[in-house]
Nucleic acid binder design. Structure first.
Length: 288
DNA sequence: CGTCCCCTGTCA
DNA sequence: TGACAGGGGACG
């Protein structure tokens, strides 16, 4: 469910509420096995209870609790996960699967309809982020570095943008929105994009993520922020789940297809195929 | 790389 | 009843 803007909104909500708090209890519904990826709940509890939370960070779509023993507790909400701050004794959230109790009388309530979310304890922050690419909104990510990730790739540009090892934080909503804003067709082989198109895409990725944060995330279905409230970004999308509705720019009906295994929405007129088709003999080239 | 799968619910 | 759902890991 949540992509970078949604996770960042939750982080900003919860960070001041959990920083400096000590964890006094951890309860997990035993029916929610995927959450711990096989690790015994007793082990997790032993490692968390008594620890004080130094800070709450985020990398890509991971929420990262920095603990006072130097370790990091990483939570990933996957499709339907929620994490909200509640007073102890408040009624359970819908599909509540786990509770982290804090020493100030509040709980972090973890709910997850589809049970895809994951919790894991890491020895270092680097261990969490080792497999993740840069975030498109990283201040240090230059346009040239962005292009380098796309260059030479035969995979659809949408698949490259969704691959968290290439770039961290983009998901299905923001990728479709970024490709629309850049005027790029999602199934274009990434390496076929012109330099100018890559530049537009670089800026579009940053803009859609920043706009998503400004609107506190997109609540199409399950997402809520750290207080349980919906975001606003779903009211501003240009193409995502607008299949058959007119493009806001040219009026052409928004098309839907499958790219990278995901439902994909685009304007067939505003988003042109690559202007730089691959030449003979270029087909086998690959980038590292 | 694409495909299947995890799980549970909603919608056509 | 079947298709589909803000994700990602395993597989071939």
């Amino acid at each position: 469910m949540p992509e970078l803007p949604e996770v960042e909104t939750i982080r900003r909500d919860l960070a001041p509420l959990v920083a400096g708090r000590t964890i006094t209890g951890v309860e997990v519904d035993p029916g929610t096995l995927p959450l711990l990826a096989g690790a015994p709940i007793e082990t997790l509890r032993a490692n968390l209870v008594g620890r004080t939370i130094r800070s709450l960070g985020r990398r890509g779509k991971y929420l990262l609790f920095e603990l006072d023993d130097g370790r990091w507790f990483a939570a990933h909400l996957r499709m339907t996960g929620r994490l909200v701050w509640r007073e102890r004794g408040a009624p359970p959230e819908p599909y509540e699967r786990a509770v982290i109790q804090l020493d100030d009388g509040h709980d972090l309530r973890w709910s997850d309809l589809r049970k895809f979310g994951t919790w894991r304890l890491h020895a270092s922050a680097e261990e969490v982020t080792a497999k993740l690419g840069p975030e498109p909104i990283d201040a240090g990510l230059t346009e040239a570095q962005f292009r380098r990730v796309l260059e030479g790739r035969r995979a659809p540009v949408k698949a490259v943008l969704l691959d968290q090892r290439r770039f961290a934080g983009l998901g299905n909503i923001y990728v479709d929105e970024a490709l629309y804003a850049a005027g790029v067709r999602p199934d274009t082989p990434a390496g076929d994009l012109s330099r100018a198109a890559m530049g537009r895409l670089y800026r579009a990725c940053r803009e859609v993520l920043e706009r998503g944060i400004a609107h506190r995330g997109a609540s199409f279905r399950d997402y809520v922020d750290g207080q349980g409230n919906e975001g606003q970004q779903h009211m501003f999308v240009q193409v995502f789940r607008r299949t058959g509705k007119p493009c806001y720019v040219c009026g052409t009906p928004i098309a839907r297809s499958i790219v990278g295994g995901r439902a994909t929405h685009y304007c067939p007129r505003c988003q042109r195929p690559a202007r730089r088709p691959r030449r003979a003999g270029e087909g086998a080239r690959r980038a590292g």
